[in-house]
Structures are given as structure tokens and as C-alpha cells.
Simulated scan of single mutants.
Amino acid sequence: MLDTQRLLTFATVVRVGSFAAAARELGYTQPGVSQQMKALERDLNTTLFVREGRGLKLNEQGEVLAERVDRLIDDLRATEERVAAVTRLKEARVRVCAFPSANATLVPAAISRLRTKHLGIEIELFEAEPPESLDGLERGDYDVVVAFRYDDQPAPDLSDNLESIALLDEPMVLMCSDDHPLARRKQVELSELRDERWVAGCVRCRQEFVSACEYAGFTPRIDITTDDNLAVQSYVVAGLGLAMMPRMTQSFVKHPKLRTRPLLPERRRHVTATILRSQRRTPAVVRVLESLRQAAASLASATPI
């Protein structure tokens, strides 16, 4: 079995060009680096270097390993992390990663339900948006990832290692101040709003908003952008623009002077929970998924427009 530390040392030697330079970078002695390389050669039952003058050069076997060493290190680390994840899950510790608005609404409700039924499960929370969160799941950084995509965006191309479960389809809504003329409307056609000023949210929400406007036949005038959902609402209430946001964002914080109205044509954000296939029967993960489904169903029925 290849030793990860020896592979890391080999990768450093290849990158910096000598045992001495690798020793300086890694904080080892030069004999220490030499001993690790000899041990790696014993592991592989072959030589990796040939002497060239006063220096060393990779031989053919060394070149082969050099081409693959970074991938080997990544695979070994991911494997170690997944083994550790199984241990954590047997101890009923689940790492949940979600995007910000889900971490403010869906996930707390799910954990609350979980605590009332399964007191032994410990939840460790993280926050990230897709695709970074899904990449982290693949690496073994998380056990459950709550992610989203919009109507225009294709479903993520998941590897065979991952499995997604649908949680919630939520409509995008128009946000305006209570003294705006649109506040008296029951619903609004997006194509009517080509002359309005806009406040835009996070990068992916902004992309969806621009795409929706282009589909409606215009390019929106975005005056303000911010990742802070409360700030979006505050700017809208101050009369600085309208906003198009997922309905979930109004369920955890709603300014008293904010009004939301359905938009036509309707556009939706699709929220999912994704796990490693190898963990789909792990009791702690199964219970977390059940609680997320129940919380999503409650959120869908309880959030008014």
C-alpha cells in the first residue's frame, strides 16, 4: 500500500527539482527526504531516479508515477475521508452543507424535527452553494448537501457516486415596497417591468433573473447587487428598485413594508438533497433525509405569497 506522505514528498521533489530543495520546502533534512524516496521505491519494488552528474533525474518508472501522483494523492485523501465519514455516521454524526437561505429556513426546521425523534444524532453545519457544495460532497467533505438549480439550468451531471432527492420546487416572486403601484396587483407579468430599476441577489439568482428578463424581451437595469437577503429587501422597501427572488427568502425574514407578488410566466427554483450512494442506507443519513423532506413539505404549504 502506498504511503500518502511519501507520495507528497515525491510530488514535492518532482516540482522543485531536487531532494535538497524539497527538504527546505517541507522542513525535513535532505537525508530524511532521501530515506522517504528509498522507502517509496521499496513500496513499488522499482527505482524512480537515476543519477545525472551531481543531480538526480526521473527514470521511466519515475516519469509514470510523476504523471499520476497528484491524482493518487487526491484519491487517497478522498478515500481516507470517506472511511472517516463512515465512522462518523456510525457514531450518528452527520455533516450537512446547504446554501444560505436553506440554512436559514429548511435546515433548522429539519434539525428541529430530527431532535424530537432521534436525540442521538449530532449535526455539523456548513454553508456553500452549488456546484462548490456538490464538489465537496464528492471529495468527502460533507454527508448531505442541500443544493438548488433554476428552470433554465440543467440538472447537475452527478457522478455515479452521488444520488439526489427532490425536496422542494419554489416559485420566484416579485418583491416591491407596499407603496409601489404593483403592490395592489394580484400578479405581475415580467414583460411589463422593462423600465423598472432592479436590486439583484447572489450570483446564481442574478443569472436566473437576467435570463428571465431576456426571455421576457428586455435587459434589466440592475442598480444594486448584494448577497444579503435582508439587504435586498431593505433596498426594495427604500424604493431603490424591485427584486425577483425565490419565495424561501421571505419566509425567514420579511420587512414589514415589503410586498411579494406572483410573477408570470412562473419560474421555479428546484431544491434537492444529495448524498453519496454508499451512504443511502446509513441510518443517520436516512433520518436526516426524512426530516428534510418533512420540513420541505411544511415550508411549501406554510409560506404565503
Rank of each mutant, 00 (worst) to 15 (best):
R184V: 05
R184G: 04
R184W: 04
R184H: 03
K186A: 14
K186N: 14
K186S: 15
K186E: 14
Q187R: 14
Q187D: 07
V188W: 05
E189C: 09
L190H: 02
E192G: 00
E192C: 02
L193Y: 09
L193P: 03
L193V: 09
L193H: 10
E196L: 03
V199E: 02
V199M: 07
A200H: 03
G201V: 06
C202S: 12
C202F: 03
V203N: 08
R204P: 01
C205K: 04
R206A: 00
R206C: 04
Q207G: 12
Q207I: 09
Q207N: 11
Q207M: 09
F209V: 08
F209E: 00
V210K: 06
A212W: 01
C213K: 06
Y215V: 05
Y215R: 11
G217Y: 08
F218Q: 09
P220Q: 10
R221L: 12
I222H: 07
D223W: 10
I224P: 05
D227W: 03
D228G: 11
N229H: 15
N229L: 02
L230Q: 13
A231P: 02
Q233W: 03
Q233C: 10
S234G: 10
S234E: 15
S234Y: 11
Y235N: 09
V236F: 03
V237Y: 09
A238N: 12
G239K: 12
G239Q: 07
G239S: 10
L240P: 01
L240C: 05
G241M: 08
L242F: 07
L242G: 09
L242S: 12
A243N: 05
A243H: 00
A243L: 07
M245G: 00
P246V: 04
R247D: 11
R247T: 10
M248C: 05
T249D: 14
T249Q: 14
Q250A: 12
S251H: 05
F252E: 00
F252N: 06
V253M: 05
K254F: 08
H255Q: 13
P256W: 13
K257G: 10
L258S: 11
T260W: 00
R261E: 02
P265N: 10
P265R: 12
P265Q: 10
R268V: 04
R269I: 13
R269P: 02
H270E: 04
V271T: 14
V271E: 07
V271L: 04
T272K: 03
A273P: 06
T274K: 06
I275A: 03
S278H: 01
S278E: 15
